[in-house]
Amino acid sequence: MSDPQITVTEPRVGPERLIVGLSGGVDSAVAARLLVDEGHQVEGLFMKNWEEDDTDGHCAAAEDLADARAVAEHLGIPLRTVNFATEYWDRVFERFLAEHRAGRTPNPDVLCNSEIKFESFLDHALTLGATGIATGHYARRRTGRDGHHLCLAVDSDKDQTYFLHRLTRRQLGRSRFPLAGLRKGEVRRMAQRIGLRNAAKKDSTGICFVGERRFREFLERFLPRTPGPIETPDGAVIGEHRGIAFFTIGQRQGLGIGGVRGSREAPWFVARKDPARQALIVVQGTDHPLLFSRVVTATDLHWIAGSPPGDPPYPCRARLRHRQPLQDCLILGYDQHRCQVRFDRPQRAVTPGQAIVFYRADECLGGAVVDRAGS
């Protein structure tokens, strides 16, 4: 299958009243400036969605709000604030914890986008009389006769369609992505050129709206420790863990496995979890066969267009994690909720709970949640 082709973004429309989600970061700031330059009536909105630890130094909401205010003042646009903490807890964080309790590894950014940024925020903006919303995501919207399509950004390293694959055409129709045709370096240079104080601000890599923190210690505030054995594939117990919720497939660090008598000198990796026994199955070596899978079964299937792109078996490409190069695959079959996918090449560390996202050329078709993997 040939490499995706980046097509031209849809033509500009007349001036609109758009509300930009200003996070305090450089991407949303430049997105707002681009819309101002295009002549739109632009307002900013800062979302505060986490209140559990405002005083512990982890969540920099106050600093981010100060940066957002500085950006709005610099651009001469009004800034509103809104608190979606209840919605975030109920619709994103509770599901995030439930998945971890089940021994899976969820991606909260996917739910955060579909439930908060492009649902709660969008609905709020529309009640304020806006035409639509805009964000600093690296993604493109293309409009055709059949509706709106989500497409790869020009900057393949920053492309965020993986996190946006649960959007609907309704949400896309009301959303703008001003950074679609820019690369990250261009965005930072533009921010410096126009004098934005956050031009060099580091990108956020933490949990959506929760912030950056030591992940295991953070989870232990909400999930109990459930110790269990660390085993080799043949059942030999070589250690004990504090809970399978705190580990993910392919993980190497933090296993606490010392030297094992008669074992070769090679690093250990998590290959499987057994929630029924609270067991962690580990293997040695980066290329151990148990770390690789070709067939993936996934649930909670979502198509952006509202219906499948074609009858199975359907050839396309997919990725199992953000920034992974697109992989050739065949969707063997699907119903309303599930699908089974076979990759042309074995995939390493396929992780239940993570998203599998499908593409056709430069278009993101939708995705599902990995349930299990097989050979």
Results as ranks from 00 to 15, higher is better:
239 G>Q: 06
239 G>V: 10
239 G>P: 11
239 G>N: 06
239 G>I: 07
239 G>D: 12
239 G>F: 08
240 E>L: 06
240 E>K: 14
240 E>G: 13
240 E>Y: 11
241 H>C: 09
241 H>R: 10
241 H>W: 12
242 R>Y: 07
242 R>Q: 15
243 G>C: 09
243 G>V: 10
243 G>W: 08
244 I>E: 03
244 I>V: 14
245 A>H: 08
245 A>E: 10
246 F>G: 02
246 F>Q: 03
246 F>L: 09
246 F>I: 07
246 F>K: 03
247 F>T: 11
247 F>Q: 10
247 F>R: 11
247 F>E: 12
248 T>V: 04
248 T>A: 08
249 I>C: 09
250 G>F: 06
250 G>L: 05
251 Q>F: 04
251 Q>L: 05
251 Q>W: 04
251 Q>G: 06
252 R>N: 13
252 R>A: 11
252 R>K: 13
252 R>D: 05
253 Q>I: 07
253 Q>F: 06
253 Q>E: 08
254 G>A: 12
254 G>R: 11
254 G>Y: 07
254 G>W: 06
255 L>P: 06
256 G>W: 00
256 G>I: 02
256 G>H: 02
256 G>N: 00
257 I>W: 03
257 I>N: 00
258 G>V: 01
258 G>Q: 04
258 G>R: 03
259 G>E: 13
259 G>Y: 05
259 G>T: 07
259 G>L: 05
259 G>N: 06
259 G>H: 09
259 G>Q: 11
260 V>Q: 04
260 V>I: 13
260 V>C: 05
262 G>Y: 02
262 G>F: 02
262 G>P: 07
262 G>S: 04
263 S>Y: 06
263 S>K: 07
263 S>L: 03
264 R>H: 14
264 R>G: 14
264 R>K: 15
264 R>Y: 08
265 E>P: 05
265 E>R: 13
265 E>T: 11
265 E>F: 06
266 A>R: 04
266 A>V: 00
267 P>A: 00
267 P>R: 00
267 P>H: 00
267 P>Q: 00
268 W>I: 03
270 V>D: 03
270 V>S: 04
271 A>K: 05
271 A>L: 09
271 A>S: 15
271 A>W: 05
271 A>G: 14
271 A>Q: 06
272 R>P: 00
272 R>K: 11
272 R>D: 09
273 K>T: 10
273 K>V: 04
274 D>N: 11
274 D>L: 09
274 D>T: 05
275 P>I: 07
276 A>G: 08
276 A>D: 14
277 R>A: 15
277 R>Q: 15
277 R>D: 14
278 Q>Y: 13
278 Q>H: 15
278 Q>W: 13
279 A>E: 13
279 A>V: 12
279 A>G: 14
279 A>K: 13
280 L>Q: 11
280 L>R: 10
281 I>E: 11
281 I>V: 15
282 V>L: 08
282 V>Q: 02
282 V>A: 05
283 V>M: 01
283 V>G: 00
283 V>D: 01
284 Q>P: 09
285 G>Y: 00
286 T>F: 07
287 D>T: 12
287 D>R: 14
288 H>K: 10
288 H>G: 08
289 P>K: 12
289 P>E: 10
289 P>N: 11
